[in-house]
Computed example of a mutant assay.
Amino acid sequence: MDQLLSTDMDLSSAETDQRIHDLSGQKQSGLAWVKANVKEINDWVDRDGFALLRGLNIVSTNQFSTILETIFGEQLSQYIYRSSPRTALRNNIYTTTEYHADQVILQHNENAYSNCWPMRMGFFCVVPAKTGGDTPLADSREVYKQLPEALRNRFEERGIMYVRNYGDIDLPWQEVFQTQSRDDVEAYCWKNDIQCEWFNDGRLQTRQFRPAVMTHPQTGEKVWFNQAHLFHCSAVDTEMPDSIGADYLPRNAYYGDGGEIAKQDIDVINQVYRDLTFSYPWQRNDILLLDNMLYTHGRQAYTGTRKVLVGMAKAAR
């Protein structure tokens, strides 16, 4: 899929940004320091919506998972009902989305297309890219506020219908639902208010209806919380609808009543994201903690080798 380039502000200076916490002077191991400072770390995320921990001594993926479980206070979540390719490692740690290095991943709140999403996310930079490869952020509260009122009201009133067709073009259903069983897929869909239909050619189609705007359970603020701009047909190869037919697109987004979303509206949404996006160049061993409802994340295109891992917890509905 073609992705839109984002424009990022560089806020990399730890001397001027209180959301970067330089811990390089700590003599304790990364895990020991985290265990001694759990409340303060969570206070940072509650206060600012995210926190970048820089300079901790972290020696393994297992240590990263233990650090996240210590901070989040629970086991990490499995990633089911996926929308992008990634590799599962131990203890519910995953690689970040494995799209080709020349692609930009648009801003999004994780699993905002689903009725179950993580409230907390943690990213770990094992190897920073040679160039690019940042994980840009944007404040979902500001996205909501800066969208034109008429557009915002239209989405808020009508909601969104996400349509997915699973097969060779996009992820197969076996990977998305992490099962080989059609019965398991149907049970998951029933439990999560997803309409599913099997076709004679073996293709699976799902439809899910979700709000475009949510209220944060702690702050009480409205946030723009959806992936209409990522699922919309304008985000895929422009020649794909003619070659396979609009009904067979791997994914698309409509208003909740089935009405088409105008490309011009998607363009406005993407522009607001671009206007609000900023990034911190990754350094080795950085840990970025996010409130997944308050902040979106994405990925810049990059060169060289890049390895960033992610873990999620505190499921919400």
Results as ranks from 00 to 15, higher is better:
I261Y: 03
H216D: 07
L56M: 00
Q271G: 04
W198N: 09
N292P: 06
M161R: 13
L11W: 13
N62K: 14
F278Q: 04
D10R: 15
W33R: 00
Q218I: 15
L309D: 01
G25F: 02
R19P: 10
I169G: 03
L53Q: 10
G122Y: 01
I41R: 01
R251F: 10
A101V: 03
Y144N: 07
D170T: 01
Y295R: 02
C196K: 09
K222S: 02
T179I: 09
I266L: 00
K130L: 13
M119V: 06
A316Q: 14
E260I: 10
T303Q: 15
Q300G: 14
Q174T: 14
C196Q: 08
V185W: 05
I244K: 03
L276I: 08
D286R: 04
D237Q: 05
Y280G: 01
S279K: 09
N200P: 11
Y79H: 14
A36K: 09
T296W: 07
L137F: 14
A36E: 14
R306V: 11
N62H: 09
Y254N: 02
I160N: 01
Y144Q: 10
I269H: 11
L204N: 12
V272N: 08
W282H: 03
A150H: 13
A14R: 13
L230C: 07
T179Y: 02
T70H: 05
S12D: 11
V176R: 03
F64T: 04
V163K: 07
H108A: 11
D184Y: 04
T16K: 00
P211G: 06
Q218Y: 07
S83R: 00
G49N: 04
W117N: 05
A101W: 05
A315H: 06
R182A: 00
L276A: 05
D184L: 09
E40F: 06
C125H: 08
P118E: 02
V236G: 13
T131N: 13
S65M: 04
E69D: 03
I71W: 03
T277W: 08
Q26E: 15
N153M: 10
D237M: 06
G220C: 06
R19D: 09
D291E: 13
D237S: 07
F124A: 00
D170W: 13
R306L: 15
L171H: 04
